[in-house]
C-alpha cells in the first residue's frame, strides 16, 4: 500500500543476495516479525473482546475464545447501535469532525496565502506568532473558554466544539500550508499577476489547486485529531459529547461492561483507521513536512 511511497530502496537488491547474506538476515526478520506480532496483539485483543458476552469477557482473557470459538457473538454491536446515547455520540462526533475539518482548512489557506504571497508590514512577525502558537497546550484555554461558552450559550453545542477545534488547528494548518504555498514557482504567480488576476483569483485559481496535496494531508490530520478528541468534548459539552467523551462514564464499572466499552471503542477506531488506510500516502507526506502538534 501507500507507505511504499516513503519506502526507500533496499540496501542491496534482494534478488541477488547470496544464501549467506540471507541467513545472516534471519535474526532481523525474526526480530521484526516478533515486534509486528507484539504490535497487533493489543488491537486484536480489543476486537476479540468486543465479540464476547460481558460475563465471558470479564471472567477470562479474550484469547481463551480460540479454544471455544462458539462464544463469538455480534450481539454487542447490535446492542450499541440500538443504544441511543452511543448513536447520538457518533452523530455528534461526525458533525464536529466535518465542521472542524472544513472550517480550519478554509481559514488557514486564506491566511497561509497572505503569509506566503502578499507583502505587508509585520508579515514575518505574524508567521512567527503562528509558529509559537503551535506549542500552546489546550489546557491553557479550557477555563476561560468554559466560562465564555457558558456566557455565550456555546456550552454543550456542536458549534462550540467546532470553533474550539478550528482555532487550535489553525497554527499548524497555517504553518504547513504557508510553507507549501511558498514552494509554488514564482514565475507562475508573477505571470498570473501580469495577466491582471486579482489576489482572490490567484488564490482560487492557482494556489488552491496546486495546494491540494497539502490540503489533503491536513484534512486527514484534522479528521483523525478531531474524531479522536476526548479532552475538548469532555470539558465543553455534556449531552452532546463526542464518542470518546461519551464512553468515559463507562470506565467507572470497567470489567462488567466490557460488552459496551469494547465494541464502542473498537467501532470508534474503525472510521479513523479507514481514513488512515485510504489516504495514508498524504498523511505520511504531511507528517514529513514537519509536524509539531
Amino acid at each position: 500500500m501507500a507507505v511504499a511511497e516513503v519506502r526507500q530502496p533496499a540496501l542491496r537488491d534482494e534478488a541477488h543476495e547470496t544464501l549467506a547474506v540471507r541467513i545472516a538476515k534471519l535474526p532481523v526478520h525474526l526480530f521484526l516479525l516478533l515486534i509486528g506480532i507484539m504490535w497487533l496483539i493489543p488491537a486484536a485483543g480489543l476486537f476479540v473482546t468486543s465479540l464476547l458476552p460481558a460475563a465471558t469477557a470479564n471472567a477470562r482473557g479474550w484469547w481463551h475464545v480460540f479454544s471455544k470459538p462458539s462464544e463469538v457473538t455480534f450481539a454487542n454491536y447490535r446492542m450499541i447501535f440500538h443504544n441511543s446515547a452511543i448513536t447520538h455520540a457518533l452523530v455528534v462526533t461526525a458533525e464536529v469532525t466535518i465542521g472542524a475539518t472544513i472550517l480550519p482548512i478554509l481559514i488557514a489557506s486564506l491566511a497561509a496565502y497572505a503569509l506566503a504571497w502578499i507583502e505587508f508590514p509585520g508579515r514575518d512577525w505574524a508567521f512567527v506568532t503562528v509558529v509559537g502558537l503551535m506549542v500552546v497546550p489546550i489546557q491553557m484555554a479550557l477555563i476561560p473558554i468554559f466560562s465564555l461558552y457558558n456566557t455565550l450559550n456555546l456550552y454543550d453545542t456542536v458549534l462550540g466544539l467546532i470553533l474550539f477545534h478550528t482555532a487550535f488547528a489553525l497554527p499548524f494548518a497555517i504553518f504547513l500550508l504557508r510553507n507549501f504555498f511558498a514552494g509554488i514557482p514564482r514565475d507562475l504567480m508573477e505571470a498570473a499577476r501580469i495577466d491582471g488576476a486579482s489576489e482572490w483569483r490567484l488564490f482560487f485559481k492557482v494556489v488552491l489547486p496546486l495546494g491540494l496535496p497539502a490540503i489533503a494531508a491536513l484534512a486527514i490530520f484534522q479528521v483523525l485529531f478531531v474524531w479522536n478528541d476526548f479532552l475538548v468534548g469532555f470539558t465543553l459539552s455534556q449531552d452532546n459529547q463526542p464518542i470518546a467523551a461519551a464512553l468515559a462514564g463507562q470506565l467507572r464499572q470497567f470489567g462488567s461492561n466490557l460488552d459496551v466499552i469494547a465494541p464502542a471503542s473498537f467501532f470508534s477506531a474503525v472510521i479513523p483507521l479507514t481514513v488512515f488506510a485510504l489516504f495514508q500516502r498524504y498523511f505520511v507526506q504531511g507528517l514529513l513536512a514537519g509536524s509539531v502538534k
Partner: peptide, 26 residues
Amino acid sequence: RIAWASFFKIVLFMPLAVSLFAVGVI
C-alpha cells in the same frame, strides 16, 4: 533490510490512527 518493510510499517503505524482514549481501553 527487509522486503516486507511497507507491510511492517503499516502495522506499526496503525495505532496512531486510534484515539488515545481507545488506546487506554485497549
